[in-house]
Write a protein that binds this DNA or RNA. Sequence first.
DNA 1: CTTATTCGTAAGTAATAACTAACGTTAGGT
DNA 2: ACCTAACGTTAGTTATTACTTACGAATAAG
Lengths: 103, 103
Amino acid sequence: MAYEQALTALADPTRRAVFEKLRHGPMAVGELARGFPVSRPAISQHLGALKTAGLVRDVRQGTKRIYAVRPESLKELRVWLNGFWDDALAAYKTALEGETGDG
Amino acid sequence: MAYEQALTALADPTRRAVFEKLRHGPMAVGELARGFPVSRPAISQHLGALKTAGLVRDVRQGTKRIYAVRPESLKELRVWLNGFWDDALAAYKTALEGETGDG
DNA sequence: CTTATTCGTAAGTAATAACTAACGTTAGGT
DNA sequence: ACCTAACGTTAGTTATTACTTACGAATAAG
């Protein structure tokens, strides 16, 4: 159920880039917004969407707000994708057998 | 580069449901559209989006058109997600060490 | 050649989403 | 108390997108 919200959240390129920036560790909003062609409030809204989707969590640290990746969300995505992969691959092999089955 | 288009394509719920319907094997458009509250042309457009994203392929079979998942696209998604998972988990552990390091 | 099936495409519309600008809030410093 | 820094939120605007309806193309059958 949760992987669906994650997929929806990861659709937007800017939001995906923000998420990628958190890949190697937590970061504050200002630092996250740096380098993007859009305003800081826009990044803030993207972070809100990522948080709603369960992809990130945030902690206050003075006046700053530190965002970090939530590993559990990635785990759910992996479970879904691996399951899909297994089924699709099995179906793919079955289809190949059907094509080359009797010459 | 291709996993990004896949993520964008998998954002829409209807399109995701269509893709899920191909999980266990190929299927024609009419059969795919069956059971959805939207029209067949809408499903056709979703299939076009999935094809552009590289998630599915299609083959003509008489007047019908059979769609099937393209395993390679899933593989690219898995590579990206697994890499992200590794980095994020390492960063998560590092963050925990920082918190409980000398406490 | 005509007819029925199955499907893609084009045009137009309504809903959604990303963005900016302005404002309010909280924490830290002087 | 005053000021600055860092950030979230709201309102309004524009661009994107999902959808329906109408139409056209390709295949199979008679």
